[in-house]
């Protein structure tokens, strides 16, 4: 099972990714694709168990804006590390839509992107298989200065620059 990282630390994962093909919905919190959410919306709502939605990189924030309050988690896919759309999606969810639930990154992601994920509002990262935990933790601590405002509203330092709270907590 993929390792889940939060603030640079491995954490337990109570969520199950549900395939579109899978028939019955298992117990406990599940993450479904946007298609499945649309198809089984009523049933998933009446289940009364936390539900999360999984977006492909070309499915942008407006597609789920109306239902956002129903999701305890939004998982954003990186099909290739070069596809950076999810950075904008996360930021839109936080800044425009006021989403406060968990935003999770999964797919093909590099450690060098960890800091960017955190700064655009992601909460957790599903590490790709075989990823070294050390390089991910290191990536979070490596650079502790940023020149833009992040989602978390980092404290201004001087000029455009901000000091980041970095590293595994």
């Amino acid at each position: 099972m993929a390792l889940l990282l939060k603030d640079g630390q491995p954490v337990g994962d109570s969520w199950t990714h549900l395939d579109d093909a899978a028939g019955a919905v298992p117990e406990g919190p599940v993450i479904v694709s946007l298609d499945r959410w649309r198809r089984d919306r009523a049933a998933l709502i009446t289940r009364n168990t936390p539900v999360g939605v999984r977006l492909k990189s070309n499915q942008l924030a407006p597609e789920i804006a109306a239902d956002l309050a129903r999701f305890a988690l939004v998982a954003l896919e990186f099909p290739r590390f070069r596809d950076g759309r999810a950075f904008s999606t996360a930021r839109e969810l936080r800044e425009h839509h006021g989403y406060t639930g968990e935003i999770r990154a999964f797919g093909h992601i590099l450690p060098d992107q960890y800091q960017f994920l955190v700064r655009t509002g992601f909460t957790t990262v599903e590490l790709p298989d075989g990823a070294g935990l050390a390089s991910w933790r290191h990536a979070l601590a490596e650079i502790d200065v940023a020149y833009q405002a992040g989602v978390a509203g980092d404290a201004p330092l001087s000029l455009l620059r901000r000091k980041l709270a970095t590293g595994p907590k």
Partner: peptide, 9 residues
């Protein structure tokens, strides 16, 4: 634009 978290990819 230096290491912009949203616009580096």
């Amino acid at each position: 634009s230096t290491l912009h978290p949203e616009f580096s990819f």
